[in-house]
């Protein structure tokens, strides 16, 4: 089995799905001969040619709007938006068209579309290249939101997303792109959208996270006292998220800390916290804690490490929840 990083695992999933289904089309800015600015689509243009791998004009609304049309007419487009900060021009197409089409046509016109987007900070990038907008799309009914963190999960989830009959935004934590490798089977496999994953089991407290913050949580768990047993959940799908797994875990542990890179107010942590108190109230030993980004702009890179969630802050929330 090959040991792959996130970029390679996503590339492999794209290549295999394109091979298998000639309706799968990759399109976006610089995704052709250049292989995308992160090289995620490397080699696809050489293998599948101009019709299947399109270097588009520089227009995000154009990319998504055109991809929606392709999807309406039985193609399986996988557009790439170069950075999450440039989803802006495509917002209307995503929320007002892709997300609404099935329901408003009562199933007559559907949009099987997978929008790939690098997400999050930590790579010293320019402004608007480091944001975490997943909650905006989770709050928009009609579109699924996925954010795998590890290469194995990314391959399985991307294949599920491409085959999903509805629109999916597939966020790729860019800080992880080349910083973590694991074994990824060459053979086809899928991971269902909507299923979280227990990264490590524990009895005293549940940490729920997703995206690159997973690694800060792992560090925090490593730093925690030996007599504390913490369950770590990687959400993997943001919407619809796996509330059953979270509830089952919190009913066992009685304590919950939610960690995300995005700003606090109306972040997904708020939704998780609310559902935990609805479903697990009588099991709770402490208020649900949140460790999140601040309600500020993601700062330009001189201050980005101060903004990003770190193991110390996660550790502190864990301590507080345990001490309550």
């Amino acid at each position: 089995m090959a040991t792959l990083n996130l970029v390679q695992a996503i590339n492999l999933a794209l290549q295999q799905e394109m091979q298998k289904d000639d309706r799968v089309i990759v399109l976006g800015e610089d995704v052709g001969p250049n292989g995308g600015v992160f090289r995620v689509t490397e080699g696809l243009h050489a293998q599948f040619g101009d019709d299947r791998v399109i270097d588009t004009p520089l227009a995000e609304s154009g990319i998504i709007g055109t991809a929606i049309g392709m999807a309406m007419n039985d193609l399986r487009p996988v557009p790439e938006i170069q950075f999450e900060g440039f989803l802006g021009p495509a917002y209307d197409q995503i929320v007002n068209h892709a997300a609404r089409s099935r329901s408003r046509s009562r199933g007559a016109i559907t949009v099987p579309l997978t929008i790939r987007v690098p997400v999050g900070g930590g790579i010293h990038a320019p402004e608007l290249h480091s944001d975490s907008p997943e909650a905006i799309y989770a709050h928009s009914p009609g579109i699924k939101v996925v954010m795998p963190t590890t290469p194995y999960d990314a391959k399985g989830l991307l294949i599920s997303a491409i085959r999903d009959p509805d629109p999916v935004i597939f966020f790729e934590p860019k800080r992880v792109y080349r910083s973590f490798r694991e074994e990824v089977p060459e053979d086809e496999y899928t991971i269902p959208i909507g299923e979280a994953k227990i990264v490590s089991e524990g009895d005293d407290l549940t940490v729920v996270t997703w995206g690159a913050s997973l690694f800060q949580c792992i560090e925090a768990l490593d730093n925690a006292p030996d007599d504390v047993s913490i369950e770590l959940i990687d959400l993997r799908t943001i919407d619809p998220f796996d509330m059953d797994m979270i509830a089952e875990s919190v009913e066992k542990t009685g304590r919950c800390v939610v960690v995300h890179e995005a700003a606090m107010t109306c972040g997904l942590g708020a939704e998780i916290s609310s559902r935990v108190q609805e479903r697990c109230f009588l099991h709770l030993e402490a208020p649900v804690q949140r460790v999140t980004g601040f309600d500020t702009l993601m700062p330009y890179y001189k201050l980005e490490n101060e903004y990003l969630v770190n193991a110390k802050r996660v550790g502190q929330a864990i301590e507080e929840a345990l001490a309550y």
């Binding site: 606090m264 802050r313 502190q316």
Partner: peptide, 20 residues
């Protein structure tokens, strides 16, 4: 000094002066 957005006197931890 504390978890984000909380009054330090109200949290389980007292006298934390950790930096972020």
């Amino acid at each position: 000094t504390s978890s984000l957005g909380k009054d330090p006197s109200q949290t389980g931890l007292k006298n934390t002066t950790q930096n972020v």
